Amino acid sequence: MGKSNSKLKPEVVEELTRKTYFTEKEVQQWYKGFIKDCPSGQLDAAGFQKIYKQFFPFGDPTKFATFVFNVFDENKDGRIEFSEFIQALSVTSRGTLDEKLRWAFKLYDLDNDGYITRNEMLDIVDAIYQMVGNTVELPEEENTPEKRVDRIFAMMDKNADGKLTLQEFQEGSKADPSIVQALSLYDGLV
């Protein structure tokens, strides 16, 4: 993909415009910024974590950033290329609610087996709590990752089998306004 070129080839721009919710001009602008920050044309896990640390200076986002990195890194080569970056950004910032929920499901399904187990969710929720640090005051019933996961599973795990399917996750998330709101945070920002 033209590693350190400051412009993408027209056919690449066209393809990314088809695969995302961005215009050709927006794709070019994002590429310019991506190459400025990642001259090699790729972003590794350490660089990704560094970006998260800028956004969450009062907590430790390392663990959460690693989980997000793994979802962005579609081809699992340990690096995020621009096409992976822009497609994930498109879903998280401008995707439909169902697209965002499928993306979030992939984030929580750490072993990619098609289910979110209690332990997988606990890993992610714990990482989120570490990331936000003491900057967020949580209600008593959610002031630990374990309590939050218990509440989520009580609401979403309809067949009580200890794991969530994509359908259970989507339906449960849509029924909880706070989850829908959290997924909409990026709307309109890009």
Rank of each mutant, 00 (worst) to 15 (best):
P57R: 02
G59Y: 10
I86V: 08
K76I: 12
D113Q: 03
V13T: 15
K32P: 13
L8T: 02
D109C: 02
E24N: 04
N134V: 09
D126T: 13
E140S: 14
V13W: 15
K32V: 07
V68T: 04
I35E: 11
G2Y: 00
W103P: 08
K7M: 03
F22S: 14
E24I: 00
F55G: 00
R79W: 04
S93C: 05
K53C: 02
D44I: 14
E142H: 11
G59A: 11
Q170W: 14
E15W: 02
D77V: 06
R18G: 14
K163V: 06
T144D: 07
R118Q: 00
W103T: 15
K163R: 13
C38K: 07
D150W: 06
A88C: 12
T66G: 11
K50T: 08
L97I: 03
T92F: 07
V132W: 02
F169D: 11
D161G: 11
V125Y: 01
Q54S: 02
N70G: 12
S83G: 05
P10V: 14
P61L: 10
Q28A: 10
S93V: 03
Y21A: 07
S90D: 12
Y108A: 03
W30N: 01
F22K: 14
L185C: 03
G95S: 15
A65S: 09
A46V: 09
R151W: 11
G47F: 05
T117L: 01
G47L: 12
E120T: 06
K36N: 06
S4N: 11
P39Y: 02
I179M: 09
Y115H: 05
E146D: 04
L8N: 14
E84N: 11
S40C: 10
T92L: 12
N75D: 05
D37V: 11
V68S: 03
K50M: 07
K76Y: 14
G33K: 06
F153H: 01
L185I: 06
I86F: 14
E24K: 12
M121E: 00
K32M: 13
S6L: 01
N143D: 09
P61K: 11
K9P: 04
D111F: 15
S93T: 03
V180I: 02
F153W: 10
V27L: 07
A104K: 13
K9F: 12
D126V: 09
K32G: 02
S93A: 14
Q170H: 03
N75I: 07
S173I: 12
T92I: 06
N134M: 03
M121F: 04
Y21I: 13
G33A: 11
K32H: 12
F55L: 04
K32N: 12
L164I: 14
D73A: 13
V13M: 11
T96M: 05
V125K: 00
N119E: 08
I152M: 09
Q54E: 06
G33W: 02
R102N: 06
K25M: 15
G59H: 11
W30G: 03
I51D: 03
